[in-house]
């Protein structure tokens, strides 16, 4: 299973594109934040697909966005 590319996404429907990105993001998010990975992945999928592709290739960017999402989630639930 190689890296997900914009070309691979372009052949899928918008819903399928988010699913493909989510399937790749979820295990990475889970490794950072095991207990809230489903919600955090759901939040991240709101972002542009180009940004999500970048996060898949950049652990630093992903971690930064996960940290931000956790903060937003905690504020929302407070």
């Amino acid at each position: 299973q190689g890296p997900l590319t914009a070309t691979m996404l372009s052949s899928a429907s918008p819903e399928e594109q988010k699913e493909m990105l989510g399937e790749r993001l979820f295990p990475l998010v889970r490794s950072i934040q095991p207990t809230k990975a489903s919600k955090i992945t759901g939040m991240l999928l709101e972002l542009d697909n180009s940004e999500l592709l970048h996060m898949l290739e950049s652990p630093e960017s992903l971690r930064s966005m996960v940290d931000e999402a956790i903060g937003v989630l905690q504020a929302h639930q407070a």
Binding site: E15, K18, E19, F26, P27, T41, L45, E46
Partner: peptide, 22 residues
């Protein structure tokens, strides 16, 4: 409040219906 269900949860292997308007 409808915001209670936010954010939608992504579950691997299931269809993603989180943001149908995007």
């Amino acid at each position: 409040s409808s915001s209670v269900n936010w954010p939608p949860e992504f579950r691997p292997g299931e269809p993603w219906k989180g943001y149908p308007n995007i």
